[in-house]
Amino acid sequence: MAIGRSAVMAPVPSKLYSDDVSLLMVLLDTNPFFWSTASIPFSKFLSHVLAFLNSILLINQFNQVVVIATGCNSCNFIFDSSSVPANPNLENGRMPALCSNLLQKLEEFVTGDEKLSKEVLAAGIGSSLLSGSLSMALCYIQRVFRTGPLHPQPRILCLQGSPDGPEQYVAVMNAIFSAQRSMVPIDSCVLGAQHSAFLQQASYITGGVYLKPQQLDGLFQYLSTVFATDLHSRRFLQLPKPAGVDFRASCFCHKNTIDMGYICSVCLSIFCKHHKKCSTCGRKRQSSLEG
């Protein structure tokens, strides 16, 4: 699978952005703790994803792909198809330049992320910073929106393996609502053993696709069948729909996922216990109960 895009992608002034041109933001989960236990090795996973990214770029010459790495301690852009620098040194015959570029950035990112980590032996896998990478993706999309009336149709694809971090609940929900407002669908492909309530809600609210593949060795097939379709074509396709969504919220006080809790009647903050004063807005006495 080779691609002919090694040349500098100078911005084409007469870019014809038809309705099937996509801007795909891929959020790549690089939680090392998850990948050390995952049922598919990270290298295998990367080869599926890289092939998928290549095929996206092949579908339409104006398609744009941006990859953001979601680490445990940081997030960063590791690839942007609109600004791939020409670096012939990386072309080694085994790998298209695009891929080697991405992998190099990824390696740098992982090293940087490790430096940031504090040596704390967590009991579980721990979560990755989904809220951070979602926000970065949305910021990027906002910038694209402001370039002019003509721009590719953006969407976000989360390749998530780590479990949800309930402490990120508020930030993730804010990102979800912001995506909903700017009509950016969030697609989710969950690679871990558990369903992700965050991503279920994200896809449900923004009108994206939520999928938890059963056969991880066929990941590329899933990606190309379900997530490669642009937003315009989705109107004519039957994409998988989840049968149910976990709508449970996290409380603001202990960041626990709760089935039932107290809601501040003024600012709608959620608490697992009854507090005399709302810690978010300072309003006294909340008594409403949500189911």
């Binding site: 090392p32 990948w35 992998l103």
Partner: peptide
Amino acid sequence: IKCSLSTQEAYGSLRGFISEI
């Protein structure tokens, strides 16, 4: 799933995967 690896080991293995590919 309990993760028995230390942070260093975990990051090491992740980098290993990347160099493998």
